[in-house]
Design a protein around this nucleic acid. Structure first.
Lengths: 307, 307
DNA sequence: CTGTTAGCGCGTTCAT
DNA sequence: ATGAACGCGCTAACAG
């Protein structure tokens, strides 16, 4: 592979001029400009990305750590992210990690100057603190200031309104097990209920259970009536439906299951009503934040999705 | 971020010694070894991957260009590849590309010294020649010497044997539209048929049609009888089944559809018999080839998959 | 407008 | 065993 010196020699100019032409090309005589271009072309010269990185202290690489539980979910994100990144001439360095330890390790290995920044996607587990420049997408337990966060309050409100409109007023909620996401969701749920004159019944809200099965079990055991069930995502919805089926409770006739996040749903999957977030929108914001643009307090609003 | 000079200064040795200690070479007094280690730890020093790359002329990055038509297919490959690559301490630079032009562009952008090698996955379209170091996975129209290729002959044989065992002896084949893959598949089909005393009927083999619909149309119009249908992959199988349904032909009672490649099947998808290739095995071979190991003529054999 | 010089951070001689 | 010096390929600052 030829380097900048070869081009300079062939074009009869100095390295600096070659660099100027190929980088910002301002303030260069047209004659030498052409000479450089011609020489570069003749030698099939490609500037070395590494040498550039060393000088500029920037690699144009963004590390993406996929911590998605169900790998299928990651595909949509990856595609959306890659699209946004390549539009900004950034490269995507991919890494999968299925637990906190693996994430930490991935962060370590990617932060030897290899990446300009990191993105962690879909971590459902507790994450350790990190000093690197990291943005979190769809992660629970991540500092809000560094997260692309969904407007969960809005989602819950929208869901309750939809259900109310469909004469489902006994709405149960199996919430996130904690954190801001849980608070906001509950807030939206209560607000919308109030607006629609639906009395609040604490027994219909399950929080803090470690698994959906336990939560739903608790709900059913409590004996409280419900004809709609709000769950936090599609995976939960699937589980819930399977379990309701075991209990001979018909879906959606007896209980309408609603997913508060159906964004990573696959084409062939069962269509239950859900709030859907635009992966492209999320990716766009994430990339904007990486570039220092965008407002951290800005939240993504989902769309009601029902056939 | 601290650099090698800082460490050298703090450890009261020269850069060279620091480098020796951290690069594992022997011949360093134990005292200075410890001093360096201590200093590096104190400064939280990480050698710069980029500076290393510049001197070593190797980045440990492998570019992966996903040209998969249905993006869901890529997930399995990506996961398998990332696993193998990270085991060899390599990084995965991801790129999606949906046509030949996009692939070319991706190759261009990734080959400025940024990657040590490239991997193209799942291209179903014609690819241009490229001079970079590239390995092709699951691509049609790629030089055999650079491909991780499946033993299609074996797959077709296995399929025919399976069908014959299930009393389906009128086996139609909608083959690849050309290339070595088509030849091998046909070869396997004929060999197995011969072994099982199934007479060969050219009308049952459709080749060179641009789409499955056209091919199947042609097959049906020809009026030839068939009670089994071999197609090249799951996407084709889905289409075929939809079309057979339109024709009121019951699957599998009247026609058993068999997919010659069901590797990237999703969990929830309809289970038809298929040959499945181990994504891990494929990824392993691909990485081995990148590292200069492995035998180019070695082909991956699939496994019969039926519920 | 252009050439020269000095790094970016590290690995690797080559002397000592 | 170890330090000084050079080079990887490129860009930025400074002269001219």
């Amino acid at each position: 592979m030829s380097n900048i010196n070869d081009v300079a020699r062939l074009a009869q100019v100095s390295k600096a001029t070659v660099s100027r032409v190929l980088s910002g090309s301002r303030g260069v005589k047209e004659a030498s400009r052409l000479a450089v271009l011609r020489a570069a072309d003749a030698l099939n010269y490609k500037p070395s990305a590494i040498a550039r990185s060393l000088t500029n202290q920037t690699t144009h690489c963004i590390g993406v750590i996929c911590a998605t539980e169900h790998v299928q979910q990651s595909t949509g994100y990856l595609q959306a992210l890659e699209k946004q990144l390549s539009q900004h001439r950034k490269h995507l360095l991919l890494r999968f990690a299925s637990d906190a330890h693996a994430v930490t390790q991935a962060v370590d290995e990617l932060s030897g100057g290899l990446c300009d920044a990191l993105l962690v996607v879909g971590a459902r587990f507790a994450l350790p603190e990190m000093q690197e420049e990291v943005i979190f997408i769809d992660c629970l337990s991540a500092p809000a200031a560094l997260s692309i966060s969904c407007d969960r309050r809005f989602a819950a409100q929208t869901a309750v309104e939809y259900l109310s409109r469909h004469q489902r007023r006994d709405i149960a909620l199996i919430n996130f097990s904690g954190g801001e996401a849980a608070q906001e969701t509950l807030l939206g749920y209560r607000e919308a209920a109030e607006n629609h004159l639906i009395p609040f019944n604490r027994q219909r809200v399950i929080e803090g259970e470690s698994s959906l099965r336990l939560a739903l079990q608790k709900l059913i055991n409590s004996g409280v009536k419900f004809n709609a069930l709000l769950v936090t995502d599609d995976a939960q919805a699937q589980e819930a439906m399977a379990m309701l089926d075991d209990y001979q409770i018909r879906v959606p006739e007896q209980v309408l299951v609603f997913s508060l996040d159906g964004s990573t749903r696959l084409p062939g999957q069962a269509a239950i009503p859900a709030i859907e977030y635009s992966l492209e929108g999320i990716a766009r914001r994430a990339v904007a934040r990486l570039l220092g643009l965008g407002d951290p307090s800005d939240r993504v609003r989902g769309t009601l999705l029902c056939d």
